[in-house]
């Protein structure tokens, strides 16, 4: 036996959550040919079919692109900390964290959350992240197709992977979905909303394996100085698209938005592809050129992070390659390494 929900039932559930004040995010058609995860104003904005995956990731729900850490006021030689400036900030310890629901996330997005959990709780417990994470429920929609840049199967995932999801939806092909609740959060969300059925949903078979991550790891460990990097990095223009649309990239910068923004300290996303990322105050930059920055990204994903946490820092979503203006990313580098 399985539990199913109709598409209208799912939209009704979204409508109820929005009405209850939950921030609901999901795939939306932002413009022709562009699907992004965004906060849903209405359940009709939720896009459920006809696309491979959104061009951004759900990390924004737990690790926003800009997050206010605290406000401050400078008077003479004194600096006084103040509450934040924005209403939805978490700078006030007692402020309730808005409940969040992510609907129709892809498995490669949901799988990134346990990875981010490690990072934000490794040596320092990141309260901002943890509070948002605890208030977030993730409902994943198993993929019904895959694109040329997808490679989840190469990094140990697949279109029906449950990792990081509170509940999974599987298309039944008749406009309804099989619901598989995985955690208590998921069960609470769908409690009483589903019907029993004998239909079982199916997912896409996924892309064929495109490279072996162990080969990549062995290569990057042994080829720190190698002409491969300078050759490969030639077409990289040095923007941050790969890191910013990646579900697992988590580096951030801390910036002061000066008096014109009312004196606040923010955390914003940062990318290892920017020269400023490693620039020293002295002017020296240990990663002086794009080859070393490209190497860093691959090294971090296939060696540094796995050595520390025992898994790859990549879920195979393919967003880096998909969004790169010049068509390079983990997929192109890793396949080049694996196939020579």
């Amino acid at each position: 036996m399985s539990e199913i929900i109709s598409q209208s039932g799912l939209r009704q559930l979204v409508a109820d959550r929005i009405a209850a004040g939950t921030i609901v995010s999901g795939p939306t058609q932002v413009k022709p040919k562009l699907v992004l995860y965004a906060v849903l104003g209405s359940p009709d904005d939720l896009l459920l079919e006809g696309f491979v995956r959104p061009d951004n990731s759900i990390k924004e729900c737990v690790f926003p692109k800009q997050e206010e850490l605290y406000g401050y006021r400078i008077q003479g030689n004194n600096i006084e900390l103040t509450d934040g400036l924005t209403n939805d900030d978490l700078t006030n310890d007692d402020a309730p964290v808005p409940k969040q629901l992510v609907v129709a996330a892809r498995p490669c997005d949901a799988a990134a959350l346990p990875i981010l959990d490690h990072i934000f709780n490794w040596d320092f417990k990141d309260e901002f992240y943890n509070r948002r994470r605890a208030a977030t429920t993730v409902v994943t929609l198993a993929c019904d197709s895959h694109g040329e840049n997808c490679f989840c199967t190469s990094v140990g995932l697949h279109p029906a992977a449950e990792r990081g999801s509170d509940a999974m939806l599987f298309e039944l092909g008749d406009g309804s979905y099989e619901v598989r609740c995985i955690t208590d959060k998921g069960r609470a969300l769908f409690d009483g909303k589903t019907e029993e059925s004998d239909k079982v949903g199916r997912a896409d078979a996924g892309p064929e394996k495109k490279f072996d991550p162990e080969t990549v790891r062995a290569f990057v460990d042994q080829h720190f100085e190698d002409p491969f990097w300078s050759q490969h990095a030639l077409t990289c223009v040095g923007c941050g698209v790969c890191a910013f649309t990646c579900p697992t990239c988590h580096c951030f910068d801390i910036v002061d938005a000066g008096p014109s923004a009312g004196n606040a300290r923010y955390r914003t996303w940062d990318s290892c592809q920017f020269p400023m990322f490693t620039a020293h105050a002295s002017g020296h930059n240990p990663r002086a050129g794009q080859p070393s920055r490209q190497r860093q990204r691959i090294l971090h994903k296939f060696s540094i992070y796995p050595n520390k946490f025992g898994e790859i820092l990549c879920t195979g979503c393919g967003n880096c390659t998909r969004n790169c203006p010049e068509g390079i990313g983990v997929l192109t580098v890793a396949t080049e390494i694996d196939h020579g």
């Binding site: 951004n56 692109k65 923007c239 923004a261 914003t268 990318s271 920017f274």
Partner: peptide, 30 residues
């Protein structure tokens, strides 16, 4: 998301150091 892809792909954006990267003092709210 301030990935600066617009700047990086532009043939005309060739400044050694972009005004957006200047942080002492900050010229453009980062």
């Amino acid at each position: 998301v301030k990935c600066y892809a617009c700047r990086q792909v532009c043939p005309m954006c060739y400044c050694e150091r972009c005004i957006a990267d200047k942080n002492r003092p900050i010229a453009i709210d980062p």
